[in-house]
Design a protein around this nucleic acid. Structure first.
Lengths: 197, 197
DNA sequence: CCGTATCTGAAACTGAGTGTCAGGCTAGCC
DNA sequence: GGCTAGCCTGACACTCAGTTTCAGATACGG
């Protein structure tokens, strides 16, 4: 196992280049529109070859969405870390704070990114796809919390619904240009589900 | 308005060709795998040109998913048709019977299609995207039922959650090879949300 | 019978993503 | 310090999806 995930000089350099490329790409996308920008444009703007750009981000979309990589694991871990006697909705709600964090740390940047994603069909679709893969991870975490191996149908549904709460809350937050309180919106979304009506 | 949506001879012929192309495409996809089949293959197998194929289905995915076209409208209409005093979850649940219908009429075919879609990432993603666009339609219908113009956050969340119920139920139905009762699964999914736990 | 609208196939084009390969840079080793 | 092995890079060729254009065929209404 010599190739283990040991953070060496090279990895740090790679991460820095990656961040730099993402930054350049983001600005270009905002200015010109995601679809108008070709991989050649990106490569030229970043001063690297097309090949290199594609080596850092497998797809054009990932230059924007790569930042969310690994969130599924983080949220699932947060969920597992919740007290075992907490009910599922509450646990899910708190696990999502992991995601919300990013929006607290850099509201303006997050808002810009979110806006770009939501107004670009290709990005929207790709993000939907990524987030969809969170559901099994969350359902699995719920199952483990309950001491079972496989998630039940109910657990899967609740995991999915929790993600919807996040998305709808984000939609409303974006629609308000970040003026509304994201935490309050998320709480309201969860209440909409828990209260039977 | 001579170009109105009048069902004439030509439209019927078009629909027949479309169905024929979809059928050929489906069989090829099942046999070879969605990704292995190129547009040229499809055109050759169907005995038309690549151009023509792409005129009937804008994308390769639509050759499979085109069957679901317009479902959002149908479900939303079904939702609007529910009694005004019915609570939102119940109304949503019944509106989804519109979708379930297809699975009752042709369980075997639906199962095959569903299996192809779920095991092909590209199809899965595209369907996710399409279904995502149902949410606003359902939320809008909920709003109208409640006599307001714009859907509330709560209505959007509930619309989204209802769609999750459908998806999770379908997942379990597929996992059981169609042996479990889809209606029962869907009911169970809705119960998972309505019961607070 | 004629003009017109529609459908079709051919072909050229753009752009995303993949695979290959050779040269260059760097880190570790003698 | 020099050397070698491994990684990164850029160049290039390739496949395939999807768009656009155009010209010929076909069917339809007057």
């Amino acid at each position: 196992m010599t190739g283990a995930a040991r953070t060496n000089t090279r990895d740090i350099a790679r991460a820095a280049v990656r961040a730099e490329l993402a930054q350049v790409a983001f600005e270009l996308f905002r200015r010109e529109g995601f679809d108008k920008v070709t991989l050649d444009d990106l490569a030229a703007a970043a001063g690297v070859s097309r090949s290199t750009f594609l080596r850092y981000f497998g797809t054009k979309e990932d230059a924007v969405l790569g930042a969310f990589e690994g969130q599924d694991r983080r949220v699932a871990d947060a969920l597992r870390a919740r007290p075992a006697d907490e009910d599922q909705w509450t646990a899910l709600r708190h696990a999502l704070d992991t995601v919300i964090e990013r929006y607290h740390m850099d509201p303006a940047g997050s808002l810009e990114t979110l806006r770009l994603v939501r107004e670009t069909p290709a990005l929207c679709a790709r993000q939907l796809e990524k987030q969809h893969s969170w559901r099994p991870a969350l359902a699995q975490a719920l199952a483990e919390r309950a001491g079972s191996e496989e998630p039940t149908l109910a657990q899967s549904v609740r995991a999915a619904a929790a993600l919807d709460c996040l998305n709808v809350a984000l939609d409303h937050w974006l629609a308000s240009d970040g003026r509304l309180d994201l935490v309050a919106l998320l709480d309201e979304a969860f209440r909409a589900i828990q209260r039977p009506r």
